[in-house]
Write a protein that binds this DNA or RNA. Structure first.
Length: 494
RNA sequence: GCUCCGGUAGUCUAGCCCGGCCAAGGAUAUCGGCCUUUCGAGCCGACGACCCGGGUUCAAAUCCCGGCCGGAGCACCA
C-alpha cells in the first residue's frame, strides 16, 4: 500500500512538521471562579516534587480566576521545622505562584473540636482506649472495639476527659466510624484525633493536647474554605474515600477531586528528614546544597522557575506513574537561559603554558556567539603565558596545531606553545579548538549536583556576572557567586 | 493477604471518554550530517512505542473479557 502510494502520489507522504506546545487540559465541572489549595506541611522548604501541585493549582486558578489558598498543615508537632513557615511562601513566590490567602491549621483547633463534638453527638465517632496494635488487629478482622458502641453521653464524657488532659499520649484516640466490613481495609474506621503532651508546638506551645489527624482537619478545612477542586497525588486516593464519610455525615457539598500519578525521582534527594539530618551532620552545606532537590538548591544553580513550570505543565495531571526527567527540565531551562547567559572561560586543573614566537597578542572574545553583547578584551604581553586544562594539554600529541579560542593558533612543542598565526580557517582544516584563561584569572570553584567540585581559574571579567547565570564555554551553564575573593559556580547543566 | 490506581519509544507527552482523518504526532535523550572560533545554540536526518492473549466490528491504541507487569494505601505521618 505504502509502496503504491510512493509511486502514484508521493506528495501525500510528505509530512508537515509542527511543534506542539502542550497546554493543561481543562478542569471538569468549572462554574465560575475556582477555589483551590496547596496543603504542605511545614517540615522543610519546598522541593521539586511538591512544586508540581503548586504549579498546577496556580495554573488553573489563573486560567479560571478564583482563589488559591496556602494551607499550612502543622497538626503534627513532631514534624515541624519552624523556619518552614516562612520558607514555603518564599519558595512559592520564587516559583511565581500567586497565593491569595494563607491558612494555618494550628489556628483552627477550636473549629476542628466543634466538628468533632458534633460528630460524637451524631453517633458517628467514638473514643477508644484500646491500644493501637490491638485496635488495628480488630479492624483487620472487621470487629469493633468494645468501646465503639458506648452511648453518646459516655463518648462525650471521654472527649471532655481527653481535652482536659486526663489521658496520656496514646491512651485515648478519637475515631471516625465508617464501615468495619468495608472490603478495603484502608477505609475502615480511622483515627481523627490523638493526645500529644510530649511535644511543644512552635506556634501554639502547649495550649492544646488533642491534635487532629490529617484526614479530619483536611476534610473540615476543604469544606470550610468552600473548595471547588482538589488536586492531589493518587497516594491520597484512600484518604479521599475516608474523608467522604465526613462529607456524607455532615451533608457537605463535595469538591471535585483529581488524583494525579506518582513521580519517582531517581538519584534525587528530596526527603526532608534526610536533608535535615545531613545538614546537622555537616554533610550538606544547607537547604540549598546543589545535591538536593529543594527549590532553593535549583534556584542556586540557576534553574529558572519558568522551566519548572513548563515541565509540570508538560507532564499534566494524568494518573499514570511517571519518572522525573532531569534531561527534559534542563532542556527547558537551556531554552530560557541560553540567549541571556554570557560566555566566559573557566580552566579547571589549570596548567601554565608559555606561548613563544610573538611579543604581544590581543584577544577579543564575544560575550555571546549570536547575541550582540560586546566583547571581552585581553592583551597578553611577552612572556606570554596562559592557563590550559592540564589533562587536555597532556592528551594532545606533540606537533599538533591547535586553536586557542578567540586568541591565536599554536603548535604544541613539549611544554610550550609555538605561536602559529591567527588564521581562523585552520579550524576548517580540522584544528582542535580549546579554551584558555589569562594567568591573572580569578580562583574559581564549581560545585556539581553530584557533589564533585571543580577547582580552577576563570577569566577576571567573570566578576561582572556575579549573581547571574553564565556559560563556561565547553563546560556548561553555572550560576555565579563571589565569596572570600573566589568565584563560586553552581552548575546547572551543559 | 485485602483494596484501589495505572501500562503509547530510554524518558515525558498527544490520541483513548465519542472506534475510521493513526501511514501513531510532538518534546527530550542518543547517533550521524551541515553550520558555528564552545563539547552550547541552530538546521537536516536516523533511531525508537500502542504490555500480552482472546472477543466485538467492514474497521481497535481506542470498546468488552482474561492474564501479565508496575505503583499506592491498609499509621495515634502528611
Amino acid at each position: 500500500m505504502r509502496k503504491k502510494l510512493e509511486e502514484i502520489a508521493p506528495e501525500l507522504l510528505e509530512r508537515k512538521k509542527k511543534e506542539e506546545k502542550k497546554e493543561l487540559e481543562d478542569l471538569p465541572d468549572v462554574n465560575g471562579p475556582v477555589r483551590m489549595r496547596l496543603a504542605p506541611s511545614p517540615s522543610g522548604p519546598m522541593h521539586l516534587g511538591q512544586s508540581r501541585m503548586a504549579i498546577l493549582n496556580d495554573e488553573y486558578v489563573k486560567r479560571y480566576g478564583g482563589t488559591l489558598f496556602l494551607r499550612i498543615e502543622d497538626t503534627n508537632p513532631h514534624n515541624i521545622l519552624p523556619e518552614a513557615y516562612d520558607m514555603i511562601p518564599e519558595d512559592l513566590e520564587w516559583l511565581g505562584v500567586k497565593i491569595h490567602q494563607i491558612v494555618i491549621q494550628s489556628d483552627r483547633f477550636e473549629i476542628y473540636y466543634d466538628y468533632a463534638r458534633k460528630l460524637l453527638e451524631m453517633g458517628k465517632a467514638y473514643i477508644t482506649t484500646v491500644p493501637a496494635d490491638e485496635w488495628r488487629k480488630l479492624k483487620a478482622a472487621g470487629k469493633p472495639t468494645p468501646d465503639r458502641e458506648l452511648s453518646v453521653e459516655e463518648q462525650l464524657e471521654r472527649w471532655e476527659k481527653m481535652l482536659g488532659g486526663e489521658y496520656e499520649d496514646g491512651e485515648a484516640v478519637y475515631v471516625v466510624k465508617t464501615d468495619l466490613n468495608h472490603p478495603n481495609p484502608a477505609i475502615r474506621d480511622w483515627a481523627a484525633f490523638r493526645v500529644i503532651k510530649d511535644a511543644e508546638h512552635p506556634r501554639v506551645g502547649n495550649r492544646y493536647i488533642v491534635y487532629p489527624l490529617m484526614n479530619f482537619s483536611v476534610a473540615v478545612d476543604d469544606h470550610e474554605l468552600n473548595l471547588t477542586h482538589v488536586l492531589r497525588g493518587k497516594d491520597h486516593l484512600n484518604n479521599t474515600y475516608r474523608q467522604m464519610y465526613l462529607y456524607e455525615y455532615f451533608q457537605w457539598k463535595k469538591p471535585v477531586y483529581i488524583h494525579y500519578g506518582w513521580v519517582t525521582m531517581k538519584d534525587t534527594i528530596l526527603k526532608t528528614s534526610l536533608i535535615k539530618e545531613g545538614i546537622r551532620r555537616g554533610e550538606f552545606s544547607g537547604w540549598d546544597d546543589p545535591r538536593l532537590g529543594t527549590l532553593r538548591a535549583l534556584a542556586k544553580r540557576g534553574i529558572h522557575p519558568e522551566a519548572i513550570r513548563r515541565y509540570w505543565i508538560d507532564v499534566g495531571l494524568k494518573s499514570a506513574d511517571i519518572e522525573f526527567s532531569w534531561d527534559n527540565l534542563y532542556a527547558y531551562n537551556r531554552e530560557i537561559i541560553d540567549s541571556k547567559a554570557k560566555r566566559y572561560f573557566f580552566v579547571w586543573n589549570p596548567r601554565e603554558i608559555e606561548i613563544r614566537g610573538i611579543d604581544a597578542i590581543e584577544s577579543r572574545a564575544p560575550y555571546h556567539p549570536s547575541k550582540d553583547m560586546g566583547f571581552r578584551h585581553y592583551t597578553l604581553k611577552s612572556p606570554i603565558r596562559v592557563l590550559l586544562v592540564e589533562d587536555e594539554w597532556k592528551s594532545i600529541d606533540d606537533g599538533t596545531l591547535l586553536r586557542l579560542k578567540d586568541l591565536c593558533n599554536v603548535v604544541k612543542r613539549g611544554n610550550i606553545g609555538e605561536y602559529a598565526g591567527n588564521d581562523v580557517s585552520v579550524i576548517k582544516r580540522g584544528a582542535k579548538i580549546i579554551h584558555w584563561c589569562p594567568t591573572e584569572g580569578i580562583e574559581t570553584k564549581v560545585f556539581m549536583p553530584d557533589g564533585t567540585v571543580y577547582e580552577g581559574v576563570s577569566e577576571p571579567l567573570v566578576r561582572e556576572s556575579i549573581g547571574e547565570v553564565v556559560q563556561f564555554e565547553r563546560f556548561g551553564f553555572c550560576k555565579i557567586y563571589y565569596e572570600n575573593g573566589k568565584i563560586m559556580g553552581y552548575f546547572a547543566h551543559r
